[in-house]
């Protein structure tokens, strides 16, 4: 509920229409690009959008630094970020939900279990297993199959190979980063700027390390494990879940990096650090998603 006696009324702005144009071009360009056409429109749109967002955020920061933002507007930003993260949660829920559906229902059905005995008319002796190494296609069509399962999978390789298991390191890196970002948060709340910069810098570095490891894992999967997007539902769910997570880590790292640069420039104080706080919420969210991934994609297999 508002307590102010008069309200902030915004000026007109050219930013939204530019952003919308950028998005429109991105959609048009992406549609053309994926079917083998030109990528011009996509990159033009991306450029416009990036530039607009840069100006937009700069403007918001400037307004805030100039003390133009009422408490009410600040609360609106808080609500905005909160609900945005909630929408992201729902987006991941789709992919986790699909994974559960496939693993616990669809695959056993394809394997003629659970009241779906007649499926053996189509897939013979296909047996449900997770990770799915032998696709129904391979059982029915042998070498001619379109969807060839992977040669190896990403599951827990056994205690002896524990230390060489990348996902474990990824988990350690990300969980640590959640703590470091928290330390930074406490630091800025206590007006300890140098400590804030240090720990936020470490967090950004950890994010970057995670991404490097993730890329490493993908290269290994494609080159040595025969595990690709095309290798049936295991490859599909593996890459889509970890891939979207990776994209969000990238986003989060960039967001934190920007806050880091702002910190270096002397932004934020113990009273007002929402820009940073929002980025850190996002970071925690990305972290929690990873824990889910680690459990359901890597361990429980």
């Amino acid at each position: 509920m508002s307590t102010e006696s008069s309200y902030y009324v915004p000026e007109q702005s050219k930013l939204p229409i530019c952003a919308a144009t950028g998005l429109g071009l991105i959609a048009l360009g992406a549609g053309t690009w994926v079917k083998g056409g030109s990528s011009m429109a996509f990159f033009a749109g991306a450029l416009i959008l990036a530039f607009t967002l840069y100006s937009w955020f700069s403007l918001v920061i400037k307004e805030n630094m100039a003390g133009m933002n009422s408490d009410q507007l600040k609360r609106s930003y808080v609500w905005g970020m909160g609900w945005f993260i909630f929408s992201e949660v729902m987006f991941f829920a789709v992919f986790f939900g699909s994974l559960f559906y496939i693993r616990t229902l669809a695959l056993p059905w394809l394997g003629s279990e659970g009241g779906f005995e007649s499926n053996n008319l189509l897939w013979g002796d296909f047996e449900a297993a997770w990770p799915l190494m032998t696709t129904p296609d391979m059982v029915a069509n042998g070498e001619a199959a379109q969807f060839m399962g992977p040669e190896q999978n990403m599951s827990f390789p056994g205690w002896d190979k524990l230390l060489g298991w990348l996902p474990l390191w990824n988990t350690i890196v990300l969980i640590t980063s959640s703590f470091t970002v928290h330390i930074a948060h406490t630091a800025i709340k206590n007006n300890n700027r140098s400590k804030f910069n240090l720990w936020l810098g470490i967090t950004v570095a950890l994010g970057a390390i995670f991404l490097v490891l993730q890329v490493e894992e993908y290269i290994h999967a494609y080159q040595h494990m025969g595990l690709t997007l095309e290798s049936g539902i295991y490859g599909t769910t593996f890459f889509m879940l970890t891939g979207f997570h990776g994209a969000h880590v990238t986003m989060g790292t960039i967001m934190l990096l920007i806050q880091f640069l702002r910190g270096l420039k002397g932004h934020f104080n113990s009273e007002d650090q929402f820009g940073f706080e929002a980025a850190s919420w996002y970071w925690h969210f990305v972290d929690v998603v990873w824990v889910g991934l680690f459990i359901f994609v890597y361990i429980l297999a």
Binding site: Y101, I102, L110, F147, E230, G232, I233, Y234, T236, M240
Partner: peptide, 16 residues
């Protein structure tokens, strides 16, 4: 991109 969310041959399901 060759995924198989909705293709039974790859282990997916159109009903998903």
């Amino acid at each position: 991109f060759g995924t198989s969310f909705f293709s039974a041959a790859g282990g997916g399901d159109p009903v998903l």
